[in-house]
Simulated scan of single mutants.
Amino acid sequence: MRLVASDLDGTIVGPDNRISDRTVRAFRDCADAGVEIVFVTGRPPRWLTPLTDALGHAGTVICSNGAVTYDLGTARVLKARALALPDLFSAAAIIRKLYPAVRFAAETVDGFHLAPGFLDSGSEELPGAKAPAPLESSLTEADTVVKFLARVDGASPDEFLQRVRPAVSHLVSATHSAPTVPLLEMSLHGLNKSVTLADYAASRDIAPADVVAFGDMPNDVQMLQWAGCGYAMASGHAEALAAADKVAPAFADDGVAQVLESLLRRL
């Protein structure tokens, strides 16, 4: 084990946006043992406070499902893989035919563009969000779109993904990470967490066999398959569990910490 790659939400970060003390200790023990750590999340860079507040992490974070490589210590985007606007709008048109009441939003390296109605009535304002406006008017070629979001009512997250993904697969990569919200996350065609993680590991001469990865949702599937040892959380999605080599105890049981403690004893 030379590199630990971990998802955040549902894997080490809870609904309260906190990381347990036991998990913090396990990651610090990994660092003390010379094991590299990289966090690989669907979150944008501006939503990484659990890493700074709990862990004091100042290293690299792979954000937005692989679209952004971010240096947390310097608060700097190292690389962004943008989704072309023609592909975004073509995908939107296809999804709208399947789900006429769909609502869209777009994540850029500079903020969050919301189409009208994307947020539920009475929802708290999202940090970094622009005033709601049709994406066709708010987005320009100067915007670096790293994630395109689609949301509907009245469908399960899995049903939404299963219907939309094959219809737009020639334009974008589609996945989801919200267990109960029908919210699709789309990015550059062919991009997922594993693509950027593989680049990161190669830049440090770390082979996949030396990588231990943790995740819990469909957006973690390729990362779990790529890593030499991929652990899905016992509390995770069926797709993640099917893709992983091994199963970590549930999130509520500090599953990642339990596995890391065991692996460190073998070093």
Rank of each mutant, 00 (worst) to 15 (best):
L188I: 06
Y231L: 09
L72H: 02
A207K: 14
K147P: 02
S169W: 06
G154P: 08
G42A: 10
A133F: 12
P132Y: 07
A92F: 03
H170G: 02
D253K: 10
S262V: 11
A142H: 12
R165D: 07
F104M: 12
L72G: 00
V168M: 00
T140E: 12
S262D: 15
S173K: 01
R43S: 02
L72A: 00
A213K: 10
G128L: 07
L83V: 03
P166I: 05
R81P: 01
K97S: 07
R22K: 14
A238E: 15
V38W: 00
F104I: 14
H113G: 05
V211K: 05
D143I: 07
L263G: 02
G10K: 10
A240Q: 08
F89N: 03
G111R: 14
A242Y: 07
F27K: 03
D205S: 15
K193R: 09
D9A: 02
E141W: 10
A105H: 04
L126M: 14
L171Q: 01
D254M: 08
A93M: 05
V172P: 00
L191V: 00
P116N: 10
A201E: 13
L85Y: 02
V40P: 03
S20C: 09
R76C: 02
A242S: 12
D87Y: 00
S6Q: 08
P179I: 13
R204S: 12
G14C: 07
A31W: 01
L3E: 14
R43P: 00
R28Q: 11
R18E: 15
V146K: 01
A234H: 05
G14D: 15
R76D: 13
P182D: 11
D143A: 02
E239R: 12
E159M: 08
G215H: 07
T108C: 02
E239L: 14
R76Q: 13
R22M: 10
P218Y: 05
D210K: 13
T175I: 11
T108M: 09
D158I: 13
R76H: 13
T49D: 14
A198S: 15
E136F: 09
V13A: 03
